[in-house]
Computed example of a mutant assay.
Amino acid sequence: MSEEQAVLVDVADGVMTITLNRGKAKNAVNKAMAEGVAAAMDELDSNDDIRVGIITGADNTFCAGMDLKAFVTGELPMLPGRGFCGFVEAPPKKPLIAAVEGFALAGGLEVMISCDLIVAADNAKFGIPEVKRGLAAAAGGLVRLPKQVPPRLAMEMALTGDFIDSAKASEIGLINRVVPAGTALEGAKALAATISANGPLAVKLSKQVIVESGDWTADNMWANQQDIVNPVFTSEDAIEGATAFAEKRAPNWKGK
């Protein structure tokens, strides 16, 4: 399957939608898909006209993980410096939303938790069942998931391989929004529209602080934050935002 078929990319109204497009294989990730996603992430970060990214799956499922048929032939769906699916070790600097229908399992869940926000259908299922295949959830399930949900629950998911549903995922804070089945992408686009209406520099640097501050201490967190966000307060967008508020109009952001 060619790279173009494995990943579909659409840009509209400042939002990039990346679709994992191997529906017959439950959108399992092979090398072509990893390469396609990596190229899309590069475009997301480098194109100033794009404010937010969404990643979703074709045919009413998100992603069933690594393509095991390709794996047994020696093909790995990873790229140097980027990891599984071309981005889990190097997520984009701009916001990325997962729109989840159906199953987000194994590497699929690891793709999902590499995103900043998650909108999921009410019938979606989540899990890291790698242990059931003699494998380990090494694309984020063992190191990223325990930082997003209570560690004991992450431990249970990792050691049992059992699935959880959207209600449980919402209860433990794994996902942001639960929507009716078939509307996850619609819900993600609504969330993306809200984000893209805000100052792009402020959004990007706010994400950076939240992502990086997990490793900061009480002694350095304020200084580290100021180093990152200072450009926001001296930006053209800050003046524009205040002016637009006073003039009761929508801001005309420049991203600088």
Rank of each mutant, 00 (worst) to 15 (best):
V88T: 15
M1W: 06
G127I: 01
I239P: 02
V15H: 04
F245Q: 04
T160F: 06
V119T: 10
A136C: 13
G187T: 13
T243A: 14
L201N: 02
F103R: 13
E171P: 07
A64C: 13
P95W: 11
A169L: 08
V72T: 15
L109R: 06
K125V: 01
A6C: 10
L191Q: 09
V178T: 10
F126S: 00
P150W: 04
K254E: 06
I195L: 15
D219N: 14
S46G: 05
A246D: 14
N198H: 11
T243V: 12
I172Y: 01
G141A: 01
E75G: 10
E236M: 08
M66P: 07
L142E: 15
D45P: 07
I50F: 02
R152T: 14
L145D: 03
C63K: 04
V178N: 08
A38R: 09
A25R: 10
N47S: 00
E247K: 15
L201M: 13
P200T: 09
S2M: 09
G14Q: 05
L96S: 00
G255I: 03
T217H: 07
G134K: 07
E89M: 02
V37H: 08
T56F: 10
A192S: 10
I172T: 08
M1S: 15
L205G: 11
A218H: 14
R144T: 11
K94N: 00
Q148V: 06
P150K: 09
I55A: 02
G173C: 03
G36V: 04
A40G: 06
I54Y: 09
G255E: 03
A124Y: 03
F87R: 09
G81K: 06
S114M: 01
D227W: 00
A99T: 10
F62Y: 04
K94D: 01
G83P: 07
E101K: 10
E101M: 12
A158D: 04
G199T: 06
L20Q: 00
N123S: 14
G83M: 05
T183A: 09
G53C: 04
A154D: 00
E240H: 06
Q5S: 07
V9N: 10
G141E: 04
I228C: 11
A154R: 05
N198R: 14
N27M: 04
P231H: 11
P151R: 12
V15Q: 06
V229N: 11
S170K: 15
A25F: 07
D165W: 03
Q208M: 11
I228Y: 01
D67N: 15
L105W: 00
V88H: 03
A188H: 08
P95Q: 06
F87W: 13
A137H: 02
E212I: 12
A184E: 07
Q225P: 03
G199N: 15
G140P: 08
L205D: 14
D162G: 04
F87H: 05
V7H: 08
L185F: 01
F245M: 12
W216E: 10
K132G: 08
M155F: 12
T56G: 10
G173M: 06
G141P: 06
T19P: 05
S114E: 00
I195S: 01
A136Y: 14
M157Q: 05
